[in-house]
Structure formats: structure tokens, C-alpha cells
């Protein structure tokens, strides 16, 4: 330990980080709690305008507001769909990548690309891929002419093109696009973690299984998955946390109107907070606290389950 004489030196070295954390992390957290419980909070109260009373009013407003319910529903739906899909896909890809010897460096770069690419940029590319042009132009039975690559592929195989994201598209088509996008975007990080886990598994377990004549499937389910369970738990927990904070991906595809119709039908929790932050800081803060509560509870459940299920 540092001798007490030199303690001030330690604090000095820590000071820049502490100051920045206090200003940009700790203070906003306290302020959020403070604002969330101030009913009728507005910018005027900052400069000594009308005084506001403390209470749960903001929370009541938030929960009553139908847009918030939509946002909550969308967020939960995206979480529940994308976390399992991306985790399972990442596991399969990681296991495959781990068994490929040639080009492994090259492949590692390729699969990591989505992670280092701006999510708005990816969103725009996805929007272009799923786009259609000329839907319902001129009314009634006008044929849909597609330009998006996805619909081109569907048509190539003789399918009907789908209105994925444009005006008039269905909710589930929108959700499908979002799931594809989020899963794709979430894969690199998960693959990285799982691949790291796989590479640290003692090869002798596989040799032992081989000598005992274990089928590939059994090796995967009985040895690989249990030995990876700590990493799987980590990936699932961070996946849920990330999923609840989903926002920029939707902006990337639907723009900051959070939907094609202008009704914010694809809104998420963070989207709702962003939408309210300019005029209804109280509601935004209350929604942020609700989101925090949900993430906290889900993470606790995750930790509890993973403690029971993961090994050593």
C-alpha cells in the first residue's frame, strides 16, 4: 500500500479521471434522479422559475403515455428475439472459426468489421438493402418495383417482394429487419468473446472425448458448451444490457422519426428518452430510471441463473 505521506500523490494522479467521472457520470446520475422526482420540471426551474414539488408524477405521466408503452414493448421484443438468436449464431460461428486453420487471420478481420463500423452507417446500408421503390405509386394495383437487394434475391427465387421498411410496411416486417440488423451487428463482439473462450479450453478434453468415441454433437453439447458457459453467461448479460439500450440502429434504418409512418411505432426506451429530453426532462429522467430498473432486474435474474447453470 501507499504510505500515508505519499497518499496525496496517488490522489493527484487519480484526479483527472475522478474529476471527469464526477462531472460526466456521477453528477448526471444524481441529477437524473433529482429531476425524475420533480413534477412539472422545466428549464425555467433551473434559473429559479416556478418552483416544483417532488413526487411520482413524472413516472405516472410516462407510464400513462401510450408512446412509452409502445417503446417498452418494442424494446422487450427486440431483446427477447435478438439475444438468443445472436448468441446461438455467435456460438456456432465461433466453433466453426475455431476449427478452421487456413485464413484464420483473414477471417478474424472480416468477422470483426461490423464491430468497428458506425451503426448509423450500417443502418443506412441495411435500409438500402431492404428498400423498395415505387410501392403503390399511382394507387390501386400498381406492381411493386423493387430496388433493394433483399427483394431482388426473393424475386430471383420466385418469391413475392416484401415491403420491408417503406411506408405501408407491416410492423412484423419492420421487426424482422431490425432483428436481422441487430443480430448481425451484435455478432462480432460475441464471437470474439466465445472464440477467446474456445481457444483457452484445454485441447486434452477433446482428445479424451475422441478416444472415448464421442460424436461431434455430443462433444459440442456436453463439453464445449459447458466449458464455455461462463463466457456464454457474460455474452447473454451484456447482450440484454445492450438490447435494452437499442436506439441508433433504429435511427440508422428508420431515421430519427423511429418509424416509417411518423408515429414512432418502432420507438424504443432510449428513443423515448431522447424524444422527451428537450421539452420534458422530468419524463425523460423518469423513463431513464425505469429503464435502469428493468436492466437491473434482468441482470440480477441473469446472474442468478448463470450462477446455477455455469460451471466452476
Amino acid at each position: 500500500m501507499v504510505e500515508s505521506k505519499h497518499k496525496w500523490k496517488a490522489w493527484l494522479y487519480l484526479a483527472p479521471a475522478i474529476v471527469l467521472l464526477l462531472i460526466f457520470t456521477v453528477w448526471p446520475i444524481f441529477n437524473t434522479v433529482h429531476v425524475a422526482f420533480q413534477e412539472g420540471y422545466n428549464e425555467l426551474s433551473l434559473i429559479g422559475g416556478e418552483s416544483t414539488k417532488y413526487g411520482f408524477g413524472n413516472f405516472v405521466d410516462v407510464v400513462k403515455y401510450p408512446g412509452f408503452v409502445t417503446a417498452l414493448k418494442n424494446t422487450l421484443l427486440l431483446c427477447v428475439l435478438t439475444v438468443p438468436i445472436s448468441t446461438i449464431l455467435a456460438l456456432v460461428i465461433a466453433v466453426c472459426l475455431n476449427s478452421i486453420k487456413p485464413l484464420s487471420r483473414f477471417l478474424q478481420t472480416i468477422y470483426f468489421l461490423p464491430y468497428v463500423t458506425n451503426s448509423i452507417a450500417i443502418g443506412m446500408v441495411f435500409a438500402a438493402m431492404f428498400n423498395i421503390v415505387g410501392s403503390n405509386i399511382g394507387g390501386e394495383a400498381e406492381l411493386i418495383t423493387t430496388s433493394g437487394i433483399i427483394n431482388n434475391v426473393i424475386e430471383f427465387f420466385g418469391g413475392e417482394p416484401v415491403n420491408w421498411i417503406n411506408s405501408g410496411s407491416s410492423y412484423w416486417a419492420n421487426i424482422t429487419v431490425m432483428v436481422v440488423y441487430i443480430v448481425w451487428n451484435a455478432l462480432p463482439f460475441k464471437i470474439l468473446i466465445l472464440l477467446g473462450g474456445l481457444q483457452s479450453v484445454n485441447k486434452q478434453y477433446y482428445d479424451a472425448a475422441k478416444v472415448d468415441g464421442t460424436s461431434r454433437f455430443r462433444v459440442f453439447t456436453k463439453i464445449t458448451v459447458p466449458l464455455l458457459s461462463p463466457m456464454l453467461a457474460y455474452v447473454v448479460i451484456t447482450g440484454f444490457i445492450g438490447g435494452f439500450k437499442e436506439y441508433s440502429s433504429i435511427v440508422g434504418i428508420f431515421g430519427d422519426d423511429m418509424g416509417h409512418s411518423g408515429n414512432r411505432e418502432m420507438d424504443t426506451m432510449v428513443g423515448y428518452i431522447q424524444d422527451n429530453i428537450d421539452r420534458w426532462q422530468g419524463r425523460a429522467s423518469a423513463a431513464a430510471l425505469i429503464l435502469f430498473g428493468i436492466i437491473f432486474i434482468v441482470t440480477m435474474i441473469n446472474l442468478y441463473v448463470s450462477k446455477k447453470k455455469t460451471h466452476y
Binding site: Q204, A208, G213, S229, Y312
Partner: peptide, 17 residues
């Protein structure tokens, strides 16, 4: 897999889970 030998590894390689 098909030789049917029993092999004991130096570090035992017992499945830890």
C-alpha cells in the same frame, strides 16, 4: 474413436463440469 483404447492423460483431462 474406432480403436477402442483406454487412454489416461498426464493431466488426467477429467471434464471439470
Amino acid at each position: 474413436e474406432n480403436r477402442g483404447v483406454g487412454l489416461v492423460f498426464q493431466n488426467y483431462a477429467l471434464y471439470p463440469h
